[in-house]
Every structure is written in C-alpha cells, then in structure tokens.
C-alpha cells in the first residue's frame, strides 16, 4: 500500500515505521493514523519505545525504515517543514531557566516567525490565561514545576501548530494542576490543534479520543477507551493496560 501524497484529513500517518539501534529494535513496524483535531493518547510501559517513536515523528530522529507523514510532510525529506507545523514538549523541562517567562515566550515566538504585534498579543493572552501576571518578569527557574509545565505547553502551541507532541507532560505534577493542564489541552484541541500525548496516568488516557498501547516496540491495541475496555472485558483503562503490558519483555530503556 502506498501513502497518498497529501491527506489533509490526517495529521499523522505512519506505515511500518521502525527504529533500530544496532541489534536493538526500539520501534518495530508501527502503523497508525491520527486524525486532524484528535486527542491521541500514546501509551506504553517504560522502555516500550514511545519516546523514540515520538522523536521520529517530530523530525528529531531519522527512522530506520517504514514511512510516515506528519502534517502532510515526509519524515525523511521534509523534516524542517514538519518542524514549522508542530509543537513539542519534551519529558525534560526545556525552556530557558535563566530567562524570564516573557523572554522565553518572546524567544520561541520569534524563532517561529511571529510578528512583533503577534508576540505582544500572544504574550498577554498567554499570561492572562495561565494567571501568572505576577510572575511574568521572574526567571523561569523560580517557578514551581506545575507552572513550568503549563508554560511549556503554552509555548509549544504559541505558533498555532497543526500538531503538538507532548511527552509525559504531567509527570510529577499534582492532581489539581493536572486537571488545569488538561483544560489547556482541550482548549488547544478546540482550536483544531491535533494533540499527540504520552502518559502513564490511566485517568488521563480516558480523556483521549483514541489511544494506542505500545508493548516492546509494537502497537498492541488502538481504539477508543470505551471500545478497548469492552474488548478486554475490563472495568478500567488500568486493567486494559495491565493485561497488555504484563507480557512485556522490556522494562527499562
């Protein structure tokens, strides 16, 4: 089967996408589609290959084999076009700690080519939305983790990308802040931004339109949370995940 040149209804389309490091196959022939505007949960145990897969989709890592189109662009040939159309929030907090909130917003907005007018309105909007008027001129290093994560997400969608990739965005964050974080995700989704998110919290998995569960580099299940629960005859997503991940060979990686 050949990937159609540009399918605007799909934000992500992969076919047998693989990444090998020497003998080790981190990602093993994953095939899936993500629709535009969808919230797609990308689940898997530690070491299942989620981050590696996400890095390939973001153009940070070149696949070993297989095909993938992100926002209509090929992951081999047009990585820089992909980068213009996506936002990325890594597992590790990666805004500049020695710059203030406003300076970070200005810098990343500027890099994505926002005009001065846009930078001004966007900054004000973002600071009001997050309710951090008091902290706008403080160094990011002085913010608590939950605030940093919300800021990080807001910066990742500052340039209104087609897709935003979130790698365990709520790790180590308290439940109230997690709820606020998901409100931000819903708001972005309502604006038509496709959300691709990895998480270890099964309550968060329930918030997704569809989820995939990766085990040992392969996608073992992909459906809506309700359908998955039905299929595995489980009462919760926890149960579904447990049934699938129990058979995993790899635990850390």
């Amino acid at each position: 089967m050949k990937i159609q040149t540009v399918d605007r209804e799909l934000s992500i389309k992969t076919e047998k996408l693989s990444k090998r490091f020497g003998q080790f196959t981190a990602v093993n022939e994953i095939t899936f589609d993500v629709h535009k505007g969808e919230i797609f949960g990308f689940l898997g145990a530690n070491g299942a290959g989620k981050t590696t897969a996400m890095r390939m989709l973001c153009g940070l890592s070149t696949p070993t084999s297989g095909k993938a189109q992100i926002a209509g662009f090929d992951v081999y040939k047009h990585t820089e076009d992909i980068k213009r159309n996506i936002g990325y929030m890594s597992q590790k907090f990666s805004l500049y700690e020695d710059l203030t909130v406003l300076e970070n917003i200005r810098f990343f907005g500027g890099i994505y080519g926002l005009s001065n007018q846009q930078l001004k309105t966007k900054s004000e909007q973002l600071i009001t939305q997050l309710g951090i008027q008091q902290e706008a001129k403080k160094l990011v290093s002085s913010l608590p983790l939950g605030w940093k994560q919300k800021l990080s997400f807001s910066v990742a969608v500052l340039h209104e990308p087609e897709i935003v990739f979130l790698d365990e965005p709520t790790g180590g964050v308290d439940p109230v802040t997690r709820r606020q974080f998901w409100n931000l995700i819903y708001e972005a989704s309502d604006r038509g931004i496709t959300i691709f998110v990895t998480t270890h919290y099964m309550d968060e998995a329930e918030y997704c339109n569809r989820i995939s569960i990766m085990v040992d580099g392969k996608i073992e299940a992909l459906d809506t949370p309700a359908n998955l629960k039905q299929r595995f005859n489980a009462s919760s997503m926890d149960d579904v995940f447990y049934q699938l991940a129990r058979g995993a060979q790899r635990t850390e990686g």
Partner: peptide
C-alpha cells in the same frame, strides 16, 4: 545538558 537544545532542534531554525 539542560535539554533546551531539543526544544531548539524541533523548531524550524
């Protein structure tokens, strides 16, 4: 080391 390069690398810079 701080991971900010990752955020730079994912931009069209």
């Amino acid at each position: 080391e701080s991971g900010t390069i990752e955020q730079i690398n994912v931009t069209p810079i």
